[in-house]
Amino acid sequence: MTRIALLAVILLLGGCSADWGWYVVNPQTPAGQTNLIFLLGGLKYTILMSVTAIAISVVLGLVVALPGLSSRRGLRMASRGYVELVRAVPVLVLILWVYYGLPQVSGLTIGVFWAGVIALALSDSAFEAEIFRAGIQSIAKGQYEAAYSVSLSHTDTMRFVILPQALRRILPALGNQLVYMLKMSSLVSVIGMQDLTRRANELVVTEYRPLEIYTILVLEYLLLILLVSAGVRWLERRMQTDAQG
């Protein structure tokens, strides 16, 4: 938090010099106010898109991770193949392909929002799968053995014994993925999503003040992500005390 304060001070000082033109986002003028509201309005889409995408990618990641831990070679290979393939495609390329390519292949019309969500979720699911795999593998063998010896099926063992413990351990990593997702979502601006980045770009085109507008954009992401990080830490602490009774 001190770091943001410091940055704000530097910027304010900068605002005094002749090179800065903070008037574009001056909340005391009607024009500045309109611009500011326009910029901040992108927050809604950035958050909505990221949260939807992470929810889908976590589920997808788990679905991909589980066969990766199977004793069957074919299932492991399929999981591995998915992860390698998806990881090899740049997020931006995936966004373009889902938006322009997928409708032609599938015959469906896909809006900007859902194209962005699908691309982000797909791309992130490979990382989620790796996180789940590592988390599940970190649980001691004795936990499975104890569960089996009280007659739990493999599915119940995963559901009631292994996954709840694994989930606790990977929570910080999942939080990091959400942060990563919030950042990656800026790429969806290229297909016209009205997120933070897109709105900043559009405003720059009409106002010609890239320095101030992009500085605001930096601050928006910074604040958002620091908030999310704090939230993740809080959740982590809470789950820890939960487990301790």
Binding site: Q143, E145, A146, S149, V150, S151, P164, A243
Partner: peptide
């Protein structure tokens, strides 16, 4: 397994459950 119980050296209790 339905008829056989087992007690382990390291207890192997489920730590996330009461």
């Amino acid at each position: 397994r339905r008829e056989v119980g087992m007690v382990f050296q390291q207890f192997n209790l489920f730590p996330h459950l009461t």
